[in-house]
Design a protein around this nucleic acid. Sequence first.
DNA 1: TTGTATGCGTTATCAG
DNA 2: CTGATAACGCATACAA
Lengths: 331, 331
Amino acid sequence: MKIRLKDIALRTGFSINTVSRALQNKEDIAKETRQIILATARELGYIPNGLASGLRSGLTRTIAVILSDVANPFFAIMTRFIEIAARKNNYAVFVLNSGEEQELEEQAIGIAMNKGVDGIILFPVQESARSIELLRQAKIPYVLVGRHFDHEDTDFLITDDINGGYLATEHLIQAGARRILLLNGPGHMSCAREREEGYRKALKAYGIGYNSGLVIQHEITHGNTYALLKQILANRFEFTGIFAFSDVVAWEAIYALQEAGIRVPEQMKVVGYDNIQSQLYYPFPLTTIHISKDRMAFRAVEIMMKKIKGEAELECYQEIFETTLIVRSSC
Amino acid sequence: MKIRLKDIALRTGFSINTVSRALQNKEDIAKETRQIILATARELGYIPNGLASGLRSGLTRTIAVILSDVANPFFAIMTRFIEIAARKNNYAVFVLNSGEEQELEEQAIGIAMNKGVDGIILFPVQESARSIELLRQAKIPYVLVGRHFDHEDTDFLITDDINGGYLATEHLIQAGARRILLLNGPGHMSCAREREEGYRKALKAYGIGYNSGLVIQHEITHGNTYALLKQILANRFEFTGIFAFSDVVAWEAIYALQEAGIRVPEQMKVVGYDNIQSQLYYPFPLTTIHISKDRMAFRAVEIMMKKIKGEAELECYQEIFETTLIVRSSC
DNA sequence: TTGTATGCGTTATCAG
DNA sequence: CTGATAACGCATACAA
């Protein structure tokens, strides 16, 4: 049998209202009264009905995380940290995958709204800014993570991807690679554009000409890089280094390289992005760009909480996290 | 401004009730009426309030997935498939991490109940059966995945871990390993016990004595295997094969082996479990035991839906999925 | 086929 | 400090 406030009220002789206020730790309740109520609530195994309280109060203590694909370790790690932080704040999190498809992202936003979430942490697909429009219209607190829109004034937490792209490319160059394949994400993603900007800067700084044939924008969904690289390797190719959009992309690439009998780093130098290995011990030591996944996730939740409570001091929280090079054995 | 049924009612001239019924596609509504209502609902951008409908109807179209740690690729993959299937059924999923701690798992169950989920998919910690007790008392539909209780009559989906353990061990033996370290999960986990049973069976079948010093039960949380193996390798050791509880455990082990300068598979043969590489292209080809993560996840959701709708034909759904050996290069 | 009335469990307002 | 009452938005039973 489900216990309601009413049951506790009946048992203790107080009114439903008093019980509610006592359990909420409101101030104008006698100490003794509160104790009695808390005790019987515990005794009866009372679990508040979040739907009812959410409906009435307008707060559900629930947020949604909308991302590309939780099966991708980068997003899985982010999700984990977000859940840890959310739970500390007594929040539960919905996980919704967009699969990097604009339509599914918008659908996910709709689901989140339907569920009455207090806020949304969004890793936006960026095929259009309609998601932002939706969020804004609904007046629901949100924070973008990892990517941001140039012409929209939103909160966001991103990493210094120009610098990251520069560091990765520079390291490849210093390792002797002149022709460097950029296995980038699609151009609508701000982080992809910025990583490419860093790539270009580094080439320029080292006096290497930019070759558009070496810059590949592709869908970064599961298996796509692998298929693509298989194809590339089947033909003539003249690069000796690869800068991958992410560690996952790098792995897929290396997987394809291995199948083609090309050794990393001897014959091909590879640098990834995200430093997933900061959270998982993979036996393949990938040189990569580190970003602080934990700090970003925690900060995202922190901002979310402030916005929900209406404590946001600033118009927009926009933070750029540092990127650093981690040298392992792939380059 | 949030659109409610009332707004659509006002706009169309029908009553709230009619609008509600029209949007639910109930039968006793005039075709034309329905069309008008649907059109204005769309026009106004109506998003139903799931809290209100959930409160009233008792169904929230929401489930919870409670698992060890989404950052672990195995659970991430399962979560992904579960979300896909749930979403097809118009369900959203809460992800709650237990961190393999009984207390956090029970807390997570409480959160799920508070949120009014229609059902729970649980990868149980199994330190105690109290979680099952909670679930049962609350009369909330649930399915256990990956692990099951011997003395509890519950729905569960597991894999044939005795066979899996046997196949892994047999393969190690056939590859020439006689002294095989079993890096197992804790003994309270049914799947760990069953994998060990398979291990023992294989040893016996090949006339190899069981050596309890080679069987290690340990917490399988992030980083723990790595630390443990570092310690083991620092001392004298005499095994030439490792059967790891999971691919993640295997990776951590191999990571430690590499740091110790021990080559896989030349000096040490390793077999993992779960075949995470069926979903992710990792450039380290791990020999492992395959389990159908997609089929298990889809089935879990399918069962969940049936139980929620009260269509469950059987007392308990108990299914054991096949395990097969995947040979790659680590053994 | 449609409308009215009621209640889901909680919180908020206000009176006592 | 406590209690009565209304309201959140929707779905259901029943009346029309």
